[in-house]
Simulated assay, not measured.
Amino acid sequence: MPNVIKVYVHYVDAINRRIGRIMMYMIFALMGILLYSSITKTFFLPSLWTLEMAQFFMVGYYMLGGAYSLQLGSHVRMDLLYGSWRKKNKLSMDVITILFLIFYLSVMLYGGYSSTEYALEYGERSYSSWRPYMAPIKIVMCVGILMMLLQAISELFKDVARLRGEEL
C-alpha cells in the first residue's frame, strides 16, 4: 500500500481511538445527570433540562463513540452465514459492505450538514419547555458522522490490504 494510505490509516485510527476512549467516560456524566434528575423529581422541584440534556449526552456518546466501535469491530453483524466462510470470503464481503457503509455515511453527513446549517442560520431551538439551541448537538452529530466516515475508509484500506496479503 502507498505510504499516504498508511499515514491516513495511522492518524485516523489514533484520533478515533482517543475520542472513543474519552467518550467511554461520558456514560458517567450521563449517569450523573439522570441521578440528579431522579433526586430532584423525588425530593424537590423537577428540573426542566435534565431529560433533554441526558438525551444530548447520549447522542454525543453514541455518535462520537461509533468510529471507535467500528475500529474495534464491535458493531453487530449478521453472523448466520459469515461465521462459516473462509477468511478471504469474509474479507471480500467486508469490502463490499464497507462500501455500502461509506455511501450511507456520506448521505447522512450531507443531510446532517444541511440540518446544522439551518440550525445555525435560524437559531433553531427545541420545542420543549427548556428550549435549548439545537446547533451544538447537530454539530456534534456531524463530527461523529464525519469521524465514522473517515474510520470506514480506513477500514476499507485495511481490508483491501489484507486481501492483498499485507497488514496496515
Rank of each mutant, 00 (worst) to 15 (best):
A152K: 06
I137D: 02
Y11G: 01
K41F: 09
M23F: 10
L70I: 12
I145S: 04
Y36P: 01
Q151T: 06
L70A: 13
M141F: 14
S84A: 13
Y8E: 06
E124P: 01
L149I: 02
D159A: 12
M23K: 05
K138G: 03
E124T: 06
V7Q: 12
I33A: 13
F100Q: 03
M147K: 06
Y82D: 06
L64M: 07
A161I: 07
K88M: 09
M108T: 04
W130D: 09
Y61L: 12
L109Q: 11
Y118G: 02
H10E: 14
T40D: 05
M58K: 04
S106A: 14
R18A: 08
M53K: 04
M63I: 10
L30S: 09
S114E: 14
S69K: 02
I39F: 11
E155F: 02
V107K: 06
I139E: 09
S92Y: 14
Y25A: 03
E117M: 01
Q55K: 04
L30G: 12
L120V: 13
M93I: 13
T40P: 05
F103P: 04
G123R: 07
I27Y: 01
K88Y: 09
L51V: 11
E117S: 10
L64N: 05
I96F: 14
Y127I: 11
I33D: 03
A14V: 02
Y62Q: 04
E167Q: 11
S129F: 13
A152V: 01
A119C: 12
D79L: 14
